[in-house]
Amino acid sequence: MAEAERIIDTPDIPDAEGADGAAAQQPAEGTAAPAEASDGEGAAADGTGGGKGKRKILVLFVVSVVAYLLDLISKMIVVAKLEHQAPIEIFGDWLKFDAIRNAGAAFGFGEAFTIIFTFIAAAVIVVIARLARKLYSLPWAIALGLLLGGALGNLTDRIFRAPGVFEGAVVDFIAPAHFAVFNLADSAIVCGGILIVILSFKGLDPDGTVHKD
Results as ranks from 00 to 15, higher is better:
F107P: 08
K134M: 09
I194V: 10
I128A: 01
L147S: 10
N102G: 15
T114S: 12
F160I: 10
I125L: 14
V63D: 03
K212C: 09
I116A: 15
E111T: 03
G193R: 04
T118K: 11
G21D: 10
R55E: 02
K202H: 04
G168R: 07
N154G: 02
A43S: 11
G92E: 10
V63M: 06
I57L: 08
P27T: 15
V190F: 08
E36C: 02
V197A: 07
H178C: 08
I73Q: 06
R158F: 07
I142P: 00
F166P: 00
A132N: 03
Q25A: 09
I116W: 14
V65K: 00
P34W: 00
P11T: 03
S137I: 09
R158A: 08
I142F: 07
A122Y: 09
K52C: 07
E17M: 07
A80E: 13
G108Y: 11
G164D: 06
L72Q: 06
P139V: 07
L72C: 12
E17A: 08
D12R: 08
G30E: 10
L148T: 12
L184V: 11
D39A: 08
L144V: 01
M1W: 10
L60H: 01
D213N: 13
A106K: 01
K212T: 12
A2P: 06
A24I: 02
L60V: 05
L155G: 08
L155K: 09
G53M: 13
S38V: 01
A122S: 09
Q85S: 14
L144R: 02
A16H: 11
F166I: 02
E167M: 13
A67V: 06
G193E: 05
F113V: 13
F119M: 15
L144S: 01
V170D: 09
K96L: 04
D71P: 04
F173P: 00
P27S: 08
S64K: 01
P139F: 15
E17H: 11
I8R: 14
L82N: 07
A22D: 09
T114C: 04
A4R: 07
E3Q: 11
I73N: 01
